[in-house]
Amino acid sequence: MRPSQTLVVGIGSSHGDDRVGWEIADAVLERVDGRAEVRRARKPADLLDWLEGIASLEVCDAVAGEIGPGCVRSWVWPAAEIAGVPFAGSHDLSLVATLALAEQLGRLPAHVRIWGVGVHRVQAWSPMSPAVAAAVDRAVEQICAALDVARAPQP
C-alpha cells in the first residue's frame, strides 16, 4: 500500500525561542482537523521513528543566526542551501543529517518541506521573545495553506 499520510512535526524544547517548533505544532494540530498527523519532537532523530506510511512531511524547527528573529522561511527537500542553515541545537543528529540519513535508508517521504523560524533568545525556561512568538501564527498560516494546496484535487 502506498503511503498516504501527511505528518507535521515541530522540533523544540522548553527553552525560550526554541519553543517555537512546539508552539507551531500545537497550533497546527488545532487547525488540521484530522487531515494530518501532528507531533512534537525533542530532537530531529525522533523523526526516524515516525516516517512509516508517511507520504508528505512538514517539519518545523528553529534557526539560529541565518535568518532574522521571527522570520519564517521554507525549503523543499532536497535544497542545496539547506546544508548551511544552522538549525538550533548541538546535540545528536542535526535535522539535515537526520533527513539525509532517512533518505539513505529509503525511509524519507516523497515530499518533505522544512520550515525554519529565526530565533534569538534560547535560554533555559525563558519565554519566547515577542518577535518569535508573533511568528507562530504566520508560520501556521503558511503551513496550513501548504497542506491545503497539497490536498486540493489535482486537475
Binding site: 532523530a45 526516524l48 521513528d49 543529517a97 539525509a100 540519513l101 539513505q104 535508508l105 529509503g106
Partner: peptide, 21 residues
C-alpha cells in the same frame, strides 16, 4: 561517514539507531 555507509548497510545502521534509542 555513517551516512555514506547507510545506503549499503541499512539494516546495521538502523540497528544502531534502535539501540541508541
Amino acid at each position: 561517514s555513517g551516512l555514506a555507509m547507510a545506503a549499503d548497510f541499512p539494516d546495521e545502521v538502523q540497528r544502531g539507531l534502535r539501540l541508541k534509542k
